[in-house]
Amino acid sequence: MSAGLAARPYRAYKVLLVIYAVTFFVALYAPLVTIAVLSFNDSSITGFPFRGFTTRWYASALGNPQLLSAFLNSVLLGIVAAVMATTLALLLAMAFRRDFRMKGAVLNLILAPIVVPGIVGGIILLIFFGYLGMRPSLWSTVLVAHVNWVLPFAFLTLYPRLHGFDSSVEEAAMDLGARRHQVFAYIVFPMIRPAVIATMLFSFSLSFDEFIRTIFVIGFDRTMPIQFWTMIIEELAPELPAMAVMIIVISSVTALIGFALMGKSTRRS
């Protein structure tokens, strides 16, 4: 009886909540959908009205050698940064399975690149390498900036996987005479492989989108977000919506595959 009476206000709340959820998702996606629509607009002014369907902005973005090289730079840099950051993070996460002194301090050090404001994270490398006499470029300063940025996230993704790992399997292998590196190669790594690959994909996505640290140390090279930025600032180029769509698709698809792999590795362990 009392439950029946109480149910009435809750039903109103539930309806309100559903309306809110729909509004929320519409607001979240409407700007992205608008950009996707504009990327096919046959008009050299970025905006409305919609003057007809065309794919020429995609063709002209991909046909522009400067854009293409920025795109390739971002992809290659993302791969290298992801492999380096994931390797460093994996080693650190392995170490974190044991107890050692100053563990808390080491953890704070690992998280430092997220705590430092992004703009400061770029500037410290600009002045540091500047005074070491190193010319800013994609494969020196920018790579360092990206590994710095991605490393803590890679650690935070990998650490829970390794931490929740049942160590009795390893002990059994050691008792049976397996060496440390054999235990890692034949037991630990195969079990965490999906998580390692997922971490690399997340890391790639973070590096591919990185802007604020990169802009201070890029010199004359270009990554996709930097190229995109330059084109907004210099002139509102008609290729921008098409480029935006390509950037969104690449980073979100990589992240989606990462999620799928992560889900798989959770179910296994």
Binding site: P31, I35, F48, S205, D209, P225, F228, L236, L240
Partner: peptide, 17 residues
């Protein structure tokens, strides 16, 4: 999903809107 897409792009979208 939008969490994993560039904030430069997600800021830019307001210009043509």
């Amino acid at each position: 999903l939008p969490f994993w897409t560039s904030y430069v792009v997600r800021t830019f979208v307001w210009l043509p809107i």
